[in-house]
Amino acid sequence: MDTKKIDIQKLLAPAALVILYIFFCFAGKNFFSASTLVSILDSTYYVGLMAFGITFVIITSGIDLSIGTNMMMSALLAGYMNAKGANIWICLIAAVAIATFVGFLNGTLISRLKLPPFIATLGVMMMTQGFGSIITKVQTQRFPGAGAPGSEYKYIFYKTASGFPSGIVYMLVFFVVALFLLNKTRFGRYTYAMGSNEEAVRLSGVNVIQWKTLVYTVCGFFCGLASIVYAATYTTIIPGTGNGLEMNAIAAVVIGGTSMAGGVGTMSGTLIGALLMSVLKTGLMSMGLQGHFQTFFTGAVVILAVLLDIYRNKKATAVK
């Protein structure tokens, strides 16, 4: 009986995604098409990757506000290096390295120097946003566009020459990596355990400082992955942006059923959450509604999702 209950819970989010998709197929104009599906996926990549990263953080009951600006700064600096003549592949690797370092910085501030996650990452959010502008002297950076020399990276991270959305492969590969890290490794087990009761984990002789630093570092790494796909998709990186994107990622995680209180959450929930937001965005556009409607409805979905979660938990405990 117990397993049956869990199954229904697991099915709820995917069901919502499918229902929403079908709804827009009827309500939207030209929604039911391969090209719409591709554009839904396109807008999922970078939010999805960031969301995978921050899922770890949120499961430890932490928060990382710097992911949006971290991603943007890493892309910006990579673009800057590219403009200065560095090989595009080196630049992309550098983007991941920079973002990972920022994650490590967050982790150090939080676990070693005991800053509250909100404060530490708020500070780092502003610093990364500013730092990108400082280095680039507020110049917009451009990655090689389609067809330009050195644009082959787009084939891997965004679209192949034949138009196949290769970005989805890239995202899914790292979804599997995240899934594996969270569910199959010691790192993942400690992530849940720290979120459930950090003091008990510490008193079990686990080096909480080190593992928690790693959680934020991994989150940074995923921001780096996101920055690559962002660069490949949009090619133009504007200094001083990225602020606010973290909220999309956090929304995806929350819609996916991860609890902000820690200890509870799934990676597949986050993937569904990210897809759901993209379907909503693309669907509303196909109904002729502008971006601000999307923002409004995303907010409503977040609240609905969490309300549903609370109600479900209440029911689960009421049975006891």
Partner: peptide, 19 residues
Amino acid sequence: RFGLAIGLSIADNTILAAA
């Protein structure tokens, strides 16, 4: 407060110190 991650399973808690 100090001994268990009560939201996790028996198995998770059992191996916590020796993961």
